[in-house]
């Protein structure tokens, strides 16, 4: 299969993820969208690994999986802590800080 298709899919998924991060309010959904972005990158890496016929992309993708997991774990932890502080979990309502 043409490498372009993989890249197209990965680009689309990445774009969906990025759009989600920007537009979504619920931090859990934002985390999911982040996963999409990382997943898209993995796909691109694997496609390129196939194209170049070396293993670097595979190794990279494996690393990305772990990173994604760690990020989600941390993200969940913070979201839970926010829940416990009886905070509305909506990124738009994180207004305590000015930005």
């Amino acid at each position: 299969m043409d490498i372009g298709w993989y890249l197209a899919v990965s680009a689309i998924v990445f774009a969906i993820g990025a759009a989600g991060v920007i537009t979504r309010r619920n931090p859990l959904l934002v985390l999911l969208c982040l996963e999409l972005m990382l997943g898209a990158s993995s796909l691109a890496l694997l496609a390129f690994a196939k194209m170049h016929g070396n293993l670097d992309g595979h190794v990279f993708a494996l690393v990305v999986i772990v990173v994604a997991a760690a990020e989600v774990a941390v993200g969940l932890g913070i979201v839970v802590a926010l829940y416990r502080n009886k905070v509305a979990v909506d990124v738009d309502e994180l207004r305590e800080l000015h930005g």
Partner: peptide
Amino acid sequence: GSATLLYGFALIYG
């Protein structure tokens, strides 16, 4: 930022 960087890395690798 990390995801963007990663995608950039993927493209450079590509």
